[in-house]
Design a protein around this nucleic acid. Sequence first.
RNA 1: GGACCGGUAGCUCAGCUGGAUAGAGCAGCUGCCUUCUAAGCAGCAGGUCAUUGGUUCGAAUCCAAUCCGGUUCACCA
Length: 603
Amino acid sequence: MPAENVKNMSVVTQIKEATVKAISHLYGINLPGREILVNATKPEFEGDYTVVLFAFVKQLKKSPDALGQELGDTIVAQNPDLFTSYNVIKGFLNLSIADSYWLQFVTKEFTNAHFGYADPNNQRVMVEYSSPNTNKPLHLGHLRNNFLGRSIAEILKANGNEVAKTCIVNDRGIHICKSMIAWQMYANGATPASTNTKGDHFVGDYYVKFNDEYKRQIKELTEKNIPEELAEKEAPIMKAAQQMLLDWEAGKPEVKELWQHMNSWVYAGFDATYKRIGSDFDKTYYESSTYLLGKDLVTSGLEKGVFYQKEDGSVWIDLTADGLDEKLVRRKDGTSVYITQDIGLAEQKQKEFNAGQSIYVVGDEQNYHFKVLKLICQKLGLPSADGIYHLSYGMVELPTGKMKSREGTVVDADDLVEEMVNFAKQKTEELGKVKDFTPEELTELYDIIGLGALKFFLLRVDPKKKMVFNPEESIDFHGFTGPFIQYTHARIKSILRKAGGETVLQTSDSKLQTLLPLEKELSIHLEMFPSILQDAATEQDPSKVAIYIFNLAKIFNSFYTEHSIGNAENAEKKALRLQLAQLTAQVIKNGMSVLGIRVPERM
RNA sequence: GGACCGGUAGCUCAGCUGGAUAGAGCAGCUGCCUUCUAAGCAGCAGGUCAUUGGUUCGAAUCCAAUCCGGUUCACCA
């Protein structure tokens, strides 16, 4: 292996390889590196990294102690540059890494603005996220979706993938017609401009009005002793909406025109929100132009015998052998269902982007749907099939329970963003550290902090799990939060400015040989960043990055409190600590960047 | 009823491919700003890892059963 590659390998990988080599050397057995478990050594023991020996004690027919001694001797002897010593406690081989290794690492990387990012790997990945409906504005759940989608895309990019971000807009269907009917009934020609209302909220208000009137009509009918089920069907306003949907499908000009008009208001509103929260897409699909896709695939699937037709003419697939149910793919009237469109769209996207992997960021209530989708595509033998991956995320709940639009407990995305930014403003003013900022700089700073807090809050937990959104806690800027990390970054930048920048940092041929405990701990943590980014990509889990950067910031703050950086004991120490500070700032910046969070120079 | 997901400190969450005495943050209590940003640091306190059984050198982690919570199983999208 070329020397350059060795240098770029993570310490953990190097330890695994050293262990493999030592075992092979001592016992003539070749173990795969992934079978070797390497952990950070617990603080109460001496050493930096620990090889857990129990796993191969049996295979090598050695006592843990003897094995540890022999392995330790060999590993240290074979890698004198990397290790200084070892100790064995029970079945744990604790290895101490040479301080010179960390010194070398810090000196090499502290000017590397791309530290942690991998070279292009020629793989294409598609990430579909956001998927809004055009009958109401975005809410808290959409925010989790948008932040996750955007972040996964950035994490994949950082790992060398070429990423295409797409969005599918649900712009047709009965829900849109409800808003349209209500607008016709109540608006008297009002527009977002005439009422000075953001377009998506404007249209959403009529959706609410529809439901209010619908409820009232149902009540009126049930009071006339009409059964509730029938009343729900017979309410005049619902019948009007259904008629409008039929007219839309028939292409009736005045309906289409109204539809386009109202959707354009909504898009203007969405655009503003997307711009504010940092969501963007390489391509947007509209269901109004994709909902007929997949019909030909049903036909060919029938010919192949993947699907079967029932007596009434409806077309199905039997997935009971795969532990699922029978699933309809075409109605008896010949129209297609939701999943048919998804199959067709998967194929279309495959043709357009030819991505090896296609990630759908969609809530976990659709787990079954995506299982079925992938299975059907596989049975049809479609090229897109194996790359389909559902990044399933849990619902966002309030401390009081689920968000329900009917009960008015939905947290609106725009409102929440404004609230967070205002809180950032209030907090910043209280602290009074940036009184010399221009109004523009202040506005930008409030955005950075407020949005940073919100994004970090929603990204810091495992996507798969449902989470509770507590307004009081989420608005906190202390502890495990975005602003805490941003603050650490700003603090480092302040130190670097005061230290006079580059010239001090360039002291390269330092005579330093040893590190103090916190200097070493910080170095070790910094070195982990590239493998954390890889992990986050493999697991498709941004929270791995969030947790890592938080811990990094904590370690830096301890280091900062304990040791003077700008006024270090001597020139070598000063140079080292400035390098450590700069690399920490860089890792915070790069890590926050894949979460879609900016970091300020001052705050 | 079937399938899937979850239950860890008062609250919100890490840890889950089995490894050393289960970790953070918030809330509570003590200290620390005339030296690099106190949106910070140091410390105290807080746990039958839902319950029971099993697998083994070792279980929060794996298996089984039970209890609790959620999602889903539409000729809706």
